[in-house]
């Protein structure tokens, strides 16, 4: 499927900031199930964008803009060809052996409740990592409520699991914690998903990948309740969603910061015909 994507992030400051510096992970790379046809990245202020590959092989950009800034917008848009590979990710940039992805992070710290849940799901799935992972996917999708919106970057997997509710990032964190609890390497993917109707979304998407011997890395999307399909576009990976975050920034001076995102993911053919009409 050819997908068109447009993702705009705007920061506004009540008192203008003296300067802003940001790291962006907004540049998808190709793998077997994904080909980037065209892509562009634009910051609406004078600044130099520096491209650099990060530790996990993500294509990152760093920029700093000097103010006074009362507003700054980062825009990416482009087209990506995708194929359904039943969630299996082949020929992606791999920088570390799977063992690294057993590490916990503050957001995915070990939690007794999640571990117990994972154990239970694992044993009822009846053997094998793949079965356990699918079990986790189904159970989390049905038992946790998806709350659209921006991740706050501070909610831990344990907290989200306790209230059985969260953003795509929160659900992903619970999945990661559960999988690692079963000694299965797992990581976070940030990217985009096309949903039926093609309505604007207020945040990019996130899901998990887990390492299954013989298969390699396989995606699991607890929010959508599926393994990634041709509707998913993979952009960056990390130990958690913070590590794979599309935008991380910091400002000097100023106050009253608000951030809004608008994400549009559409079937290219549909959007073209829409435009023509």
């Amino acid at each position: 499927m050819r997908l068109t994507i447009r993702h705009e992030t705007t920061y506004r400051f009540e008192t203008p900031a003296a300067s802003v510096i940001q790291t962006l992970r907004l540049w998808p790379r190709g793998h077997d199930g994904q080909h980037v046809v065209r892509w562009r990245l634009d910051v609406d202020r004078n600044c130099r964008l520096r491209a650099a590959e990060d530790a996990f092989g993500n294509q990152a950009h760093v920029f700093a803009a000097d103010g006074p800034l009362d507003e700054i917008t980062v825009l990416v848009e482009g087209e990506v060809d995708t194929q359904d590979a039943a969630g299996v990710v082949n020929r992606a940039a791999e920088r570390f052996p799977p063992a690294l992805y057993l590490r916990e992070t503050p957001l995915t710290a070990h939690d007794h409740e999640i571990s117990a849940f994972a154990e239970e799901v694992g044993s009822s799935a009846g053997g094998g990592e793949l079965a356990a992972l699918h079990g986790l996917l189904d159970r989390l999708h049905s038992e946790m409520e998806f709350a659209p919106g921006q991740p706050d970057g501070a909610t831990t997997a344990a907290e989200a699991f306790r209230v059985k509710r969260g953003t795509a990032q929160d659900l992903t964190h619970v999945f990661l914690t559960a999988a690692r609890g079963l000694q299965i390497p797992a990581r976070c993917v940030s990217g985009y998903v096309r949903r039926e109707g093609g309505e604007p979304q207020d945040s990019p998407h996130a899901w998990a990948e887990a390492y299954v011997p013989d298969l390699g890395w396989v995606g699991f999307d607890p929010t959508e309740g599926v393994c990634p399909t041709e509707s998913h576009v993979r952009v960056a990976i990390g130990l958690d969603c913070l590590g794979a975050a599309p935008v991380r920034g910091s400002r000097y001076g100023g106050s009253g910061e608000t951030m809004t995102m608008s994400v549009l993911v559409q079937d290219a053919r549909a959007s073209r015909s829409y435009r023509r009409s």
């Binding site: 530790a55 996990f56 920088r95 570390f96 063992a99 690294l100 057993l102 590490r103 130990l239």
Partner: peptide, 17 residues
């Protein structure tokens, strides 16, 4: 052993390479 390195919190993936 590999996991003593990669699972070590003090190992900084950011420095690899």
């Amino acid at each position: 052993p590999e996991d003593l390195v990669f699972r070590n919190e003090a190992f900084r993936p950011e420095m690899a390479g």
